[in-house]
């Protein structure tokens, strides 16, 4: 077995699991699915520099062969942004659960129009405080 196979198959499995979870109805599962897809995407981006062992892109007079540093730089920020995105989605899910009392991604089939009275009132500041 080669590293290439391991990485490619891991990406495939992560994407499959991620898609399945992202299609579930509950916010937490969707967040987990997005996390798995993010791992896969980051690995894929990283792999676009091809796999190289023991040649980190730390410049040294004595070394002439390195791995491609650019995908690594891109993935490094991508990991941090992924965190930002995950955090935001988690909090959004939490707030939506607190607002509606349901953690269904579509707000438990509350029809769009039924909420309008409340939404408009709140927008005008005339909504009732508890």
């Amino acid at each position: 077995m080669s590293y290439e196979f391991l990485v490619a198959s891991a990406i495939g499995v992560l994407v499959a699991g991620g898609i399945f979870l992202a299609l579930r109805a509950r916010t937490f599962q969707v967040v987990l699915g997005l996390t798995l897809i993010s791992y896969a995407v980051n690995l894929f981006l990283f792999a676009s520099g091809r796999l190289v062992l023991n040649r980190p892109p730390i410049w040294d007079k004595a070394v002439s062969e390195y791995t491609d540093p650019l995908p690594q730089a891109l993935v490094l920020t991508a990991i941090v942004i992924t965190f930002g995105m995950t955090a935001f989605v988690v909090i959004l899910a939490l707030r939506s659960f607190l607002e509606t009392g349901s953690d269904h991604v579509d707000g438990d089939r509350v029809p769009c129009d039924a909420q309008d009275g409340l939404a408009d009132g709140l927008a005008d500041g005339e909504g009732t405080e508890p």
Binding site: E4, F5, V7, A8, S9, I11, G12, V13, L14, V15, A16, G17, G18, I19, F20, L23, A40, L43, F44, A47
Partner: peptide, 15 residues
């Protein structure tokens, strides 16, 4: 089914 097709395809691209 969709997930498995998707996973196989993306894994295939990576490979």
């Amino acid at each position: 089914a969709i997930a498995i097709v998707g996973g196989v395809l993306v894994g295939g691209i990576a490979w």
